[in-house]
């Protein structure tokens, strides 16, 4: 449980929190459009496309966790569940749909 006393004993650096959140959101924005390209090329429709996106997002989260955060998520993210595993999951959804529809139209129609 994180309370005021815990924060007073172990203070956190807001600059680093911001920097980490920006990097995660950059990675998510880039990879979301990549997943859109793949989903459109494969010709996925409706539910399988969204499942593909969430599956890919989970893989990217695992990459960040193992390659960037040295498998210690709590020392790089204030709340690992919200900032790393589910962070910006729906922010990339719109760019995913954009490139998904574009490449579906290019390769199918």
């Amino acid at each position: 449980m994180i309370d005021e006393k815990e924060l007073a004993i172990h203070p956190i650096v807001p600059d680093s929190v911001q920097h980490n959140a920006r990097i995660v959101s950059n990675i998510r924005a880039l990879t979301a459009s990549l997943f859109g390209v793949a989903a459109g090329t494969l010709g996925l429709e409706s539910l399988p496309g969204f499942i593909f996106y969430f599956f890919g997002t989970a893989i990217v989260s695992f990459f960040i966790y193992s390659l960037k955060a040295d498998s210690k998520a709590e020392s790089y993210f204030f709340s690992p569940m919200g900032d790393l595993w589910a962070g910006d999951m729906f922010g990339g959804l719109m760019s995913f749909v954009l490139t998904w529809t574009l490449f579906y139209g290019l390769c199918k129609a």
Partner: peptide, 27 residues
């Protein structure tokens, strides 16, 4: 398609700048 997207994800994550520790003592 799947393998190239997988490798691109790996490359994007590897080429992004490294994270900074948020604990004041570590930082």
């Amino acid at each position: 398609t799947l393998a190239s997207v997988f490798f691109l994800c790996l490359g994007v994550v590897l080429s992004s700048p490294s994270l900074k520790p948020i604990q004041w003592s570590a930082w």
